[in-house]
Design a protein around this nucleic acid. Structure first.
Lengths: 200, 200
DNA sequence: ACCTGAACACCGTTCAAGT
DNA sequence: ACCTGAACACCGTTCAAGT
C-alpha cells in the first residue's frame, strides 16, 4: 500500500488558480454537509467547473480531503510547538488534545481517513499526520517526564485515544440527530491517563 | 427520523427460506471482506438469486446488517444477564466489555450503524441495541454499587467508550494493513474508569 | 497549461411480468 | 407467496478534443 502520495500542486495559471480555489471552497462546504464521501460531481458543479477539471487538480478524493484540511491540521502542529515549552505540561497536553479532537471531527469520515494515513506512507495526508504525531508525542513526553501522565502510554496509544474521541464526537455531526457532542469522552480519557494521586 | 423499523420476516415457503439463508450467508461473508458497504448486487450473485429477491427479504441495507448480526448481539445480552449475579462485579463488567468490543467490530462499518441505532428508534438494530444498553447498564450499576467504578459514569458514556474502542479496533480490519488490533485501548479505558485506590 | 463533456463502468433501487 | 431481470437513476473515473 505504498506509492508516492499526491499532494495537490498549486496551479501555474490564473484561471487554474481560480478554479482550484473554487473547487476547494465547494469541497469544504460539501464535506461539512455530507461527510468525506460527498459527491465529487456535485462539488464540481457547485464550483462551476467540469468534472475533468476537478480531477486535474485533485486526482483522488484523498488528495481533495488533504487540501481541504491541510491548514487546520497545520495550525495544530504549530500549536503543539508553542505549547511544548509550557510550565504546565498536563494542561498543555489537555488543551492540545481538545483542539486535536475538534479538528479530527471537522466532518464525518475525516478521522477515519486520518487514522489510515497515520501509518500508510502512500497517502496524501500522511505527512501532516506524521507531523501531528511528533507534536503530540513531545507534549506527552513532557507530561510524563513531570510525572503527571502514566509513563507506559505510548504516542501511538495517545493517537488511538484521540481518534476514538474524535470518532464519538463525529457521530453527532452535523445536525446532531441524537445527543450533544460533549467533550465528556475526552475528559474521561484524560482523567484515565493521568497518574493516580488521590486516596480511596 | 422515526418510523417502524423493518425487522426481516421469516419466509413462509421452503424456497423462500432457502434463499433467505443463502443471502444471509453471502452477506456475512461480504461484510467481513468488504465492510458494511459491500455490494448488494454481489451478495445476491454469491447467493445465487436475483437482486429483487434480496430486496424482497431485506428491504434496506440496515435490515440485512441487522439480520446478519442479530445472533451475535443476542449472545451479548444473554451473557450480560448471566454475569449480572457475579460476585466480582468489576471482573464481570470488564469481561462483558471485552466481548462487546469484539462483537461491535465484527466488520468495518458495524459500530457506526450500532451507534446510530442506539438512539434512533426507526432503525432495524434499535431493539437489539436497547437490550445491550440495559444489560451493560446493569453491570455498570453493580460495579458502581461495589465502589469499584467511578460513580459519575453514565450508561450512555459507557457505550461511547465501548464504541470508541470498537472503532479503533475496526481500523485494523480485516487484513490489518497497519498494526495489531490489540485490546490495549479498552484496557486503558478500564483502568481509567475504575476508582482510584493507589498512592502517588 | 488548462478546460470541457462524452463515454464507460458500476451500483442501488423499483417494478411489471411471470411461476 | 415468491422469483426474475429489465429499467432507471446516480455517481466515479478516464480521455480525446479543444483553447
Amino acid at each position: 500500500m505504498t506509492g508516492t502520495p499526491h499532494i495537490a500542486q498549486r496551479p501555474r495559471r490564473a484561471d487554474g488558480q481560480r478554479n482550484y480555489d473554487a473547487i476547494l471552497a465547494a469541497a469544504r462546504k460539501a464535506f461539512e454537509a455530507d461527510g468525506s464521501e460527498a459527491s465529487l460531481e456535485n462539488i464540481a458543479a457547485q464550483a462551476g467547473v467540469a468534472i475533468g477539471t476537478l480531477y486535474r487538480h485533485f486526482p483522488s478524493r484523498a488528495s481533495l480531503v488533504e487540501a481541504a484540511t491541510r491548514d487546520g491540521l497545520a495550525d495544530l502542529v504549530t500549536h503543539a510547538e508553542r505549547l511544548a515549552s509550557s510550565p504546565d505540561p498536563l494542561r498543555a497536553l489537555s488543551e492540545w488534545m481538545e483542539q486535536a479532537v475538534r479538528h479530527f471531527s471537522t466532518f464525518r469520515g475525516l478521522v477515519g481517513i486520518l487514522a489510515q494515513s497515520m501509518y500508510d506512507e502512500g497517502t496524501p495526508s500522511h505527512a501532516m499526520c506524521s507531523a501531528m504525531h511528533h507534536g503530540g508525542a513531545d507534549l506527552l513526553r513532557a507530561a510524563q517526564a513531570a510525572g503527571l501522565v502514566r509513563a507506559d502510554l505510548t504516542p501511538d496509544e495517545l493517537f488511538d485515544l484521540l481518534s476514538g474521541a474524535a470518532w464519538v464526537r463525529e457521530q453527532s455531526l452535523p445536525s446532531s440527530s441524537g445527543r450533544d457532542g460533549s467533550p465528556r469522552f475526552l475528559r474521561l480519557v484524560l482523567e484515565g491517563i493521568t497518574t493516580r494521586d488521590r486516596e480511596p
